[in-house]
Amino acid sequence: MSEPSFSLSPDLLALLHAPVSGERPTPAEFFAQPEVSALYTLARDPAHSAAALQALAGLLPELPPYPASLLALMSGSLVESGADPTLLFPCCLTLMQRWQERLAPYCAREVEEEEAQDDPQAAQAWADTQARVEALDGAEADAIDELFEAVELLVLPMMTMVLRDEGNHQRFLANPALQEHIASLHDNDSLPFEQLYFLWLAACVSYENELVVVLPATGTGLVVRAHGVNNNFHTFTLLQQLMAEHQQPLGITLTATHDGNGADRAAFAWLQATAYAQGKLVNEMAWSWGEAPLRHNARRLGRCVLIALDKKDACRRNWSGFDSACHEAQNPHLVFQRYLTPEEVAAFLD
């Protein structure tokens, strides 16, 4: 059975396209308007949700940034209630990139006087940005302010869609221009975002269908599926908990390293695949950097590889504060798949 037809009312379209005089409505005021409330009531019906999202995907690029971001926020609540997270995501991805490109010239980190001598280029960038901001006239300044608010509002529905569908997350990461903007804009002083930081956290999250862990000392290893892990430190914590459940087949004795309050310590020296060649340790300094995304580790035989080096004098780190999810839909966890064969262990160390 085909989904019922869905159309946006002329009154709603007129409201959305109407120029705003005075202050922009708050989100609560916007959603309380009868035309918007009627749309939300209809779209919440599962029989109409998909068609409503498809209609909004065609509409949002035509709207001013602020109402577009508010409708995206409404759509995010539909996704949280079970609507398809993929329908509006390409549109939101395009809008986020477009808006950040327009805001980028007005974003920079402040450089204090004592820092300027060490980094004159950054100091000049800050001065140039300040000059551009000060040169904005009233209408231009208001347009930049609207874009700023729109980006902040768009973060939440983006998070909802990015972390509820791995395909969305892949498309999110596959946009290098957007990733560059998020990395530079989320922490700036001229337009200090509060919400954009969470989208940066989502960009650091990794998924690996086959994460290979090799233990050279025992000639063993395992393959796990990593879902929604924050970074390597987070992965080490989850791995050490999982490996403690498989001590006998792995040939290890592993006591608890996690204190239950977010603090942990390394049971191994965690290295990347490049630490080994032809079965020998050739670079003990090829660390798997804890703060880096899991997907940034070196690959061997097409798989992300971590080496758990059990060596008494090897460098090991402690860490804390890396195991919190950035969104309720993230659901970070590891799933044991199988043990490595001796032949596979040798191949991954070759």
Rank of each mutant, 00 (worst) to 15 (best):
S81F: 03
C92A: 05
D142V: 05
Q100V: 05
A143P: 14
R102P: 01
P105Q: 13
E112P: 01
A139V: 15
D128T: 05
L73M: 15
A150C: 14
E110C: 09
A135K: 14
A72S: 12
L147M: 10
P61M: 07
D119C: 02
L70F: 14
L88E: 04
F148R: 12
L73V: 12
Q130A: 07
Q130Y: 04
A125Q: 14
D142F: 07
L78Q: 00
R98V: 04
E62F: 13
L87G: 01
L70W: 10
A122H: 03
E149F: 10
V111P: 04
G138S: 13
C92P: 03
A125D: 14
E114L: 15
A150V: 13
G82Q: 03
D119I: 03
W99V: 03
E140R: 09
Y106S: 06
V111L: 12
L59M: 11
G138K: 10
R109N: 09
R109P: 00
P105Y: 13
M96P: 02
A141T: 11
M74L: 15
L103D: 02
L71D: 02
S81V: 00
L59F: 02
Y106F: 10
P67V: 06
D118H: 13
E101I: 08
Q117K: 15
G76D: 02
T129N: 12
Q100F: 03
A104Y: 06
D118E: 15
D137F: 11
L87S: 02
S77T: 12
E146Y: 15
L63C: 09
W126N: 04
D137A: 11
R132M: 08
M74P: 00
L147H: 10
I144M: 15
G76T: 04
Q124C: 13
E115A: 14
Q121P: 00
L71C: 04
L95I: 09
A131Q: 15
E80G: 09
S81M: 04
V79F: 01
G76N: 04
